[in-house]
Design a protein around this nucleic acid. Sequence first.
RNA 1: CGGAGCGUAGUAUAGUGGUAGUACGCGGGCUUCGGGAGUCCGUAGUCCGAGUUCGAUUCUCGGCGCUCCGACCA
Length: 414
Amino acid sequence: MRISKLFSKTSKNWPAGEEATNAKLLIKAGYIRKSSAGVYSYLPLGWRVLNKINDIIREEMNSIGAQELLMPTLVAKDYWAKTDRWEVDIAFKTKLPETSHQSTEFGLGWTHEEVVTDLATDFISSYQDLPTAVYQIQNKFRAEARAKNGLLRGREFLMKDLYSFHANKEDLDNYYQTVIEAYKKILQRLDLNAKVVEAAGGAFTKEYTHEFQVLDPSGEDDVFYCDKCDFAQNKEIAKVGIGDKCPACGGEIKESSGIEVANVFKLGTRFSDAFNLKFKDKDGSEQAVLMGSYGIGPSRLMGTLVEAYNDERGIIWPESVSPYKVHLVSLAGDNNMVAKSAEKIYTNLDKSGVEVLFDDRDISAGHKLADADLLGLTWRAVVSEKTGNKIELKQRSKPEIKLVSYEEVAKLVK
RNA sequence: CGGAGCGUAGUAUAGUGGUAGUACGCGGGCUUCGGGAGUCCGUAGUCCGAGUUCGAUUCUCGGCGCUCCGACCA
């Protein structure tokens, strides 16, 4: 992609009014635009980042046997009424216009247990149909009283929600662990260091549930955790405090704020009971299906990554989500030889399958380099009179600059 | 929803009860060309409504919007 053709542009000015780091940087760099509080457009570069996050999530979901589908955003009142969730105050509600002569009311989907459970009644009727799991990646809508922190708390946001169905508790428990491991892998691949934190079950379950908290000052949650082992509890339910001994390993308990990027719940039969989702067991007896629900927020992850990885010059994307692998900068000036050579490098890298963002604009060197740091792609390759036949290669996260050949660039960034 | 702050060109910021200024951007000219270049010309603006006033972008009230603190929050 040529920056000269890119739909978005970087700005020299910081956006007014934004305080959250992720909002300031993502808007300044042209990754996103706010359309209203908590509601964002993802511009071409931002959409690429978001899709890379989605792709990682898809791979890990598929690898644990979950199947992707897509459920509706408009969910009729009847669904929510069956589980007494029509009256929740975070639901956006809407209906058809008077002229339609239909009075159906809808809630914009803020979660999909009702819809998925109803769907499951069409296909699950025997123990032989179990276990099974489906997921979707879809915009969710929540009428948050106060949207804030850029991508970290929106009214419309992207979520991957997975639902699993089981014949017995042991199977549910096992799959719950399997999903936790899959989520850990996703977060590792995103270079995010998250704690698996015990949390309150809320309306869903009396059991504790688990949240994945990225420890970061910008987070809204308070987490007590052990610095030696995996023990961690949300402050809401914590039975430990700062300086206490870890009940698991004897280490020291610390406190941090955390960004909740994912959560997992054992739903039991709450939804299967409401929608009469049953199966016939081997012995012919009829039993309620056990369910689990597991969410992870790609758009919130994107904001979290910016909070975690930035410096005074801009964003520093982990390689796994960098919108393009290489930011190729041509500092040709009026030197046609250099300009031609940069064009050739761009074309060749592009042909060999390397994702390149090529700064072919006729602007000053300083402007280009500043933009490269702001955008934060993993690799920066500079071609200029100074570099001769070679290319300057630098990682955004590191100070070292190497002079390498074209072949080495293609190899290094693969 | 309670509290605080803020709404001025496309963006970011000044300022004034009486002709609204600067920077960036954008269009054009010349000079530049390794850390957001210089210069010249051009371009474009007071959130909406009501009130006070001879006159309101400025003062008052209301609305709408945005940010932050709190409450809320799968």
